[in-house]
């Protein structure tokens, strides 16, 4: 029982990341009809927003402290971040430690801007072109984005710690009545899951209960008719693209403490997220979320030692295996709508 619960929990954080990226992909596909291979790069950009804010906040000036000596006997150089000098070490240090959650505020305008520029500057011209062309041009864009990031931040992963308050682990076993220590779960992963759930909930509520969301859903169902009613649907779809970029970026921001950001993390997630979208059903938001969690949890179950003993290597291939089976047996994926990309 403990093992099962632990694996479900372990699958949740990766599943949340898959679900968030897949949600954005589906949103873009459902509204604009564009297959966006650069979506993983947006996830990566989000993670590097967190890195950037951390660096900005840690900008320091150097003072020479004559009272202390370093190991060579020279006066010790002390690096003081400007923020600590301005607000005092207590508050300043606190702000630096909380850089990742603060990055959410920092990342939202940046990701929205990136999304708008991307849609207006590039994607717009590809609505009428075949899906293969869309895949290819966004694939090229993903290469460009990741190389730009590599140029500025180098090829090595950059550790971006979570606030120290969440550094520890949560004894989940004791909380639900099992042996203490049987289920240990890091706080940050729990927060990541909650955060992902909140973001997804917000997106669903936005689409479901606002006029804007209603128009967008109408546009997804029949773009032409909505246009004929005198609504500028293109502009709303552009905003949806920016929103999807923002969701991917936020997923990246919060993922930075779990996995140190590097320039190719987006591509690693993209391949799996596409599998998730296809399994969930092209154009189905609920399907994307469900498939994201499902595959994340399946992956963590497949890496159980006794499962691996029975079928060696299953943990490496389970997602692809499931994808192949689903694609061949359910042409529309788990929850795909009728008539959307069925061929």
């Amino acid at each position: 029982m403990e093992v099962i619960l632990l694996q479900i929990l372990n699958g949740l954080d990766k599943g949340s990341a898959y679900a968030l990226i897949a949600l954005g992909l589906t949103l873009i596909f459902g509204t604009l009809g564009v297959v966006n291979f650069a979506h993983g790069a947006l996830f990566m950009l989000g993670a590097f927003c967190a890195v950037t804010l951390n660096r900005i906040l840690s900008l320091s000036f150097t003072t020479i402290d004559d009272t202390k000596k370093d190991f060579l006997g020279n006066p010790l150089k002390v690096e003081t971040p400007y923020i600590e000098a301005w607000f005092g070490p207590e508050i300043g240090g606190g702000i630096i430690a909380w850089s990742v959650p603060l990055s959410i505020l920092f990342a939202i305008p940046i990701m929205v801007l990136v999304g708008l520029v991307m849609e207006r500057g590039l994607i717009k011209h590809f609505y009428k072109r075949p899906h293969a062309d869309q895949i290819l041009v966004t694939f090229g864009l993903a290469i460009v984005l990741q190389e730009v990031v590599k140029y500025f931040y180098g090829a090595n992963p950059i550790p971006t710690p979570a606030p120290p308050v969440f550094a520890g682990s949560f004894d989940f076993g004791a909380a639900v009545g099992f042996d203490p220590g049987s289920i240990i779960y890091p706080y940050w992963r729990l927060i990541y899951f909650v955060f992902a759930a909140v973001v997804m909930g917000a997106v669903f509520i936005f689409l479901r209960y606002t006029t804007f969301g209603m128009v967008v859903r109408a546009g997804m169902a029949d773009r032409e008719t909505v246009g004929l009613l005198g609504i500028n649907i293109d502009r709303r779809f552009t905003i949806m693209f920016a929103l999807a970029a923002c969701v991917a970026g936020l997923a990246g921001v919060m993922y930075a403490p779990i996995n140190s950001p590097n320039y190719h993390m987006g591509m690693d997630f993209l391949v799996l997220s596409f599998v998730v979208v296809v399994v969930g059903g092209m154009g189905s938001l609920a399907g994307a979320v469900a498939a994201g969690f499902l595959l994340g949890i399946l992956e963590s179950f497949a890496s159980l030692p006794f499962v691996v003993e029975i079928i060696p290597g299953i943990n490496q291939i389970i997602i692809y295996l499931v994808a192949i089976v689903v694609l061949l047996t359910l042409p529309r994926g788990l929850m795909g709508r009728k008539g959307v990309m069925e061929d």
């Binding site: 296809v278 092209m282 994808a323 694609l327 990309m341 061929d343």
Partner: peptide
Amino acid sequence: RSGIYFSIL
């Protein structure tokens, strides 16, 4: 399958 599904497969 064809189209993007073929690519993913």
